[in-house]
Design a protein around this nucleic acid. Structure first.
Length: 667
DNA sequence: ATCCCTCGAGTTCA
DNA sequence: CTCGAGGGAT
């Protein structure tokens, strides 16, 4: 028996060593066949003597765990996010802030490392063995995905023995999918008629979320480690030394890391990698800059959401050139006609872009975009594609200026312009496109919030003459729904129930859903605070309406006109006939703790936004969508966008989730 | 008349 | 997210 034990340990050692050479150092020393032979022998022995099959054995990497779901995992130390620097100027400012704390130092040593576009992971080692691996989650609580992480061969299951004898450590790293692996995976997805992944990051995220770890094992993910936290005494004095320690423990760290004397050297590094990064076999989206000295890091400390001793420089947004194949016109619920550029599909900042709004015809004129033009596009805040310029030199002679349409693309009715407005409108209130948009808005979250009904279902309902107006939705039977494409029994009954349930929505949602011009979510809420039901509102004249704070002449007149219109009156009666006659349900303030305070919520929050907004209102505060000087607090979740930048610019109080919850609790 | 803050409407893609 | 437009303060 002892011989078996010895051989098992020997094999584990051999396999771990070759794993390390192959996956961490990219420098294999034996053939795959030889490796497989060792692996098979170990597996066979472990099957025969299960007592010797320990959790740190390399055979455990193949992934044989199938979970129901992932358990929550509370991190031992919080994973902070990083403040962003979007320009070299921002980097200088950050450096100056750090320098201010050290007036005696001329220069402060920094470490610049590539920011890998993957998923942040926390690993816990006890007595040298990987015990837990978890996703970042909201930084405090993540998901325990240990079984999946064990399949990643650049993550050691057992730490190497080091002179420092460090065997208890928390390690942070970024799990990513190499581009070659991403392409291989998508090829397989294509062949199996499965959905392809948009980018390596999504593929890595999708892989780590697999409940069957044997699937993860086949995905060949990798990880760069970038931080280690040791509680017991140690003499690691700098971040750079910590990276070296991580390597000595068997972790893979990114080789493109530079120790810099000052911020200028960091900027050099950023400039160098802005173009070189595309030659790497993995995706990067910036450079992380850290103060090197660990004692200095501790002295500098943290703001609410991020360390003061680090910042993430983001590479400037990608811009690409493409061809305008066509300019389509869409008609919204108000009848406004919006031109949309149909583009030759191009990869841009992590997704394939094929459309971009041109906003209105003035914009087309300003840019002088023509069908066939070569244009440069970028993503506004990494999300919405936008045409920024037209390459007029590349334009061939025969391209004609885009002609402003005179007829509605959907129903051929004449287009009219409204005095003082930029938009053109379809003159026919019953235009099919408008009807489609109106019904889509009715079922949307802002409207009556009907789950399971969307664009394609509404299109079918209109096509088959099953619905021309909102009230028709409520007359649909489960049988009607079963006639439609892609709707089976279960779905039909869910949709039927969702529609029926929406009959009891409060007045503000109903008023929003009606789609009265200028009356959106906010204005509807103001109205529902002043009128208890629709009849009361219909009796109000424009003087009465415009006397309400937040309602001016224009809105007042539009509302009165809407309710004077015969068709609208019929619709409201018809809705009453199917049982919809909402009453105002207003959030009554339970305290005035937040009276006069305005909040902006941004980023991905771990709690429900609607519920948070309700709580704020209950306490007398209000929630708005954009940051201005008059905003009191900006509540920041994960991956905040430009709103955080704006808040910092205006010097507005930024709260993280916890501080926000504390503030609510005080009331 | 003009500025600033909000809101509404339309849009993209995973 | 962006743009245009309404509301209210100045």
């Amino acid at each position: 028996m002892d011989n078996v034990f010895q051989r098992i340990n020997e094999l584990k050692g051999i396999i771990n060593r070759h794993n390390y050479l192959y996956y961490v150092l990219d420098n294999p020393s034996i053939t795959d066949a030889e490796y497989d032979e060792y692996f098979r022998e170990l597996k066979a022995l472990e099957t025969q003597y299960p007592l010797y099959a320990t959790p740190d054995s390399p055979t455990k990497r193949v992934g044989d765990v199938i979970s129901e779901k992932f358990e929550e995992y509370k991190h031992t130390t919080r994973l902070y996010s990083l403040d962003n620097s979007n320009s070299y100027e921002d980097l200088h400012k950050w450096y100056e802030r750090v320098q201010k704390d050290y007036p005696l130092k001329k220069e402060i040593e920094l470490v610049a490392e590539l920011k890998i576009d993957g998923l942040a992971i926390a690993l816990e080692y006890e007595d040298g063995v990987l015990e837990v691996g978890a996703t970042r989650g909201n930084g405090t609580v993540g998901e325990n995905i240990t079984a999946n992480l064990k399949t990643i061969k650049s993550i050691p299951l057992r730490l190497f023995d080091t002179p420092e004898k460090i065997q208890n450590i928390s390690v942070r790293g970024e799990v990513f999918m190499p581009v070659s692996e991403f392409e291989r995976l998508n090829k397989i997805q294509r062949e199996n008629n499965d959905k392809e992944f948009a980018n390596p990051r999504n593929a890595a995220a999708g892989s780590l979320r697999q409940l069957d770890s044997s699937i993860v094992a086949k995905r060949n993910l990798s990880m760069f480690s970038y931080a280690g936290i040791i509680n017991q005494g140690n003499d690691v004095k700098t971040h750079f030394e910590m990276l070296e320690l991580l390597r000595n423990l068997g972790f893979k760290t990114n080789p493109n890391t530079k120790l810099c004397k000052n911020i200028e050297e960091v900027i050099e590094f950023c400039t160098e990698w802005e173009t070189k990064r595309f030659k790497l076999g993995y995706a990067t989206d910036g450079v992380v800059v850290k103060v090197n000295g660990i004692k200095m890091q501790q002295e500098l400390g943290f703001t609410a959401r991020a360390p003061k001793w680090a910042t993430a420089f983001k590479f400037p947004p990608e811009e690409v050139a493409t061809i305008v194949k066509d300019i389509e016109l869409s008609v919204g619920k108000s009848g406004a006609v919006t031109p949309v550029a149909i583009l030759e599909p191009v990869q841009l900042s992590g997704s394939v872009v094929q459309r971009a709004s041109l906003y209105n015809f003035d914009e087309i004129k300003r840019l002088d975009v023509r069908i066939g033009d070569k244009v440069v596009i970028k993503k506004a805040a990494e999300i919405i594609p936008k045409v920024i310029s037209v390459d007029k030199e590349a334009r061939s002679q025969d391209l004609k200026p885009f002609e402003i349409p005179t007829k509605c693309p959907a129903c051929d009715s004449p287009l009219v312009s409204i005095e003082g407005e930029v938009n053109l409108y379809c003159a026919d209130p019953n235009c099919v496109s408008r009807l489609q948009a109106r019904l889509e808005f009715w079922v949307s979250k802002a409207g009556m919030d009907i789950d399971g009904v969307g664009e394609s279902l509404i299109e079918q309902l209109i096509d088959r003459n099953l619905a021309q107006a909102p009230q028709d939705l409520y007359k649909l039977t489960e049988n009607d729904l079963l006639q439609l494409d892609l709707i089976a029994e279960k779905a039909a009954s869910n949709i039927y129930n969702a529609i029926q349930a929406s009959k009891n929505r409060p007045l503000n949602m109903y008023l929003t859903a009606l789609g009265i011009r200028y009356v959106g979510k906010e204005t509807a809420e103001i109205l529902s605070k002043n009128f208890t039901n629709i009849d009361e509102l219909m009796q109000a004249d424009s003087e009465k309406l415009s006397s309400i704070e937040g309602i001016g002449d224009k809105i007042a007149v539009t509302v009165v006109e809407f309710f004077k219109n015969e068709e609208n009156k019929k619709m409201i009666q018809a809705l009453k006939d199917v049982g919809i006659n909402p009453i105002a349900e207003n959030v009554e303030p339970v305290s005035d703790k937040l009276a006069g305070k305005t909040f902006v919520l941004t980023g991905a929050l771990s709690f429900n936004r609607t519920a948070a907004a309700k709580r704020i209102k209950e306490m007398g505060g209000s929630v708005t969508s954009s940051v201005s000087k008059s905003t009191s607090y900006v509540v920041v979740g994960e991956n905040p966008g430009s709103k955080l930048d704006k808040a910092q610019k205006f010097g507005i109080i930024v709260l993280n989730e916890q501080e926000f919850l504390d503030l609510l609790d005080e009331g």
